[in-house]
Design a protein around this nucleic acid. Structure first.
Lengths: 173, 173
DNA sequence: CCTTGAGGTTCATTCACCGAACCTACAGGT
DNA sequence: ACCTGTAGGTTCGGTGAATGAACCTCAAGG
C-alpha cells in the first residue's frame, strides 16, 4: 500500500499489519512465494517489478520475519527466499483478497482456482473443503489455472504457473 | 498500499483487488466505515490523514462501488459515505488482516475484539461463532475494546469507539 | 578470452504523499 | 450588520518514494 509506512498513530491491528505488508508490491511478492517462487530473478521477471524495489521489499520482508533468506548454493553465492511460519499465516489474507477481487471487481474473469488436492473439490469461502468438511492444510491446496489466464505468456515463470500445482512447491521442482 | 496503482500486467485477482484497495490509507478508511464512521470530518480526525488524500480516497472508493455517497442534509449540503454490498464483502479481508496483525506482528497487544452480539462469544478464525457454530452476520458482530487501547484519546471519534458497539452502526446514533 | 546469467547497486526522473493555507456555505450569537 | 464556528472541500510547494535504465561482480561454460 502504499507508503511511507508509518501509521504510527493508529491503534489498530490492521494498521500494524499494513505497516509490514501494506507497501506497493509487497503482497504480490508474498503471493508469488505461496506459488513456489523463491529466487530473486523469478520474482523479477514474473512481477515486472523494478530491481531496486524488489531488493528493498525482500529485505524488509526478511527483517519482518515473513520470509527466510537462505543460501542454496555457495560460489557464486545464491540465496532463496522462503515463507516462514509468520509468512504462511498470511494465507487467509491472500485468499480473502483473491475472493474479493474475483467476485467484486467488475469485469474480472476467474484466473486461478484453489482445490483440495486429495479430493479435487474447490475450496469454500473460509478455505475449507466443502466435501471433506475440514480446513485444508496449505500443503494440500492445489492451484489450477482459470479461463481468464493468458495461455501463452512471455516469461518462463508465468508458463510454469499455467500448470496445476500445489502451493509452496518450489518452481524448479 | 501504497501506490501508483497500475499492476496492469498482473493476471491475478489479488492484484485486481489491490488496484482498488491497495493504496495507502484506503483500507483504514474502509475499516473506519465498518466501525460506523460516515462523515468526512470524522474520518479526518480519527485517521490523521491529509485532507486532500482523504478526499481522493473517498472519491476513488465511491467510483469503485465500495462506498456510497449520500446526502443526509440539504442546506448546507452534507454527504455521508456508507459501505455498499461490495464494500461489506471486504469484511473477511479486514478480519484476516487484523488477526494476522495481532498474532504475528511482534509486540502487538490485543486492541479490539469481535464478538457474536447474541451470545457474547468471541468470533473464531473464520469469523464464525464457535458456540453457535454459525457464521455471524455483520450486523450481529460487536466490537469490544482490548487491553492495549489508549483509555483517554484526544479525538472524539476515538472516544466514541472505546465503548462496545456493533459494526456498521453510525457513530452519532 | 569472451559471453551469459544471477543477484545486486546507483542514478536521474517522475509521481504520490504530506502539511498548511485557503475557500465556500450556512448557523448562531451580539 | 458583523463575527465566530463548523462541515467539506481545493490548491499549493516541498519531500520522499517508485520507476526504468545503466552499471557492477562473480562464476561457469565454450
Amino acid at each position: 500500500m502504499a507508503l511511507g509506512k508509518d501509521y504510527a498513530r493508529q491503534q489498530c491491528s490492521i494498521a500494524r499489519a499494513l505497516e509490514v505488508i501494506g507497501e506497493r508490491w509487497t503482497l504480490l511478492v508474498v503471493r508469488d512465494a505461496f506459488y513456489g517462487v523463491r529466487r530473486y530473478n523469478d520474482f523479477l521477471v514474473h512481477l515486472g517489478i523494478p530491481r531496486a524495489v524488489l531488493a528493498a521489499r525482500l529485505q524488509a520482508l526478511v527483517e519482518a520475519g515473513v520470509l527466510d533468506r537462505r543460501r542454496y548454493r555457495e560460489s557464486p553465492p545464491r540465496d532463496e527466499y522462503v515463507l516462514t511460519e509468520r509468512g504462511l499465516a498470511l494465507w487467509p489474507v491472500l485468499r480473502s483478497l483473491a475472493t474479493w477481487g474475483r467476485t467484486e471487481v467488475p469485469g474480472a474473469v476467474p484466473l486461478r482456482h484453489f482445490h483440495h488436492a486429495d479430493c479435487g473439490t474447490e475450496l469454500g469461502p473460509y478455505g475449507e473443503c466443502p466435501s471433506c468438511r475440514l480446513p485444508v492444510p496449505l500443503a494440500d491446496v492445489e492451484m489450477r489455472p482459470g479461463a481468464g489466464l493468458d495461455p501463452d505468456p512471455d516469461d518462463p515463470v508465468s508458463r510454469a504457473l499455467l500448470r496445476p500445482r500445489r502451493l509452496l512447491v518450489p518452481l524448479e521442482a
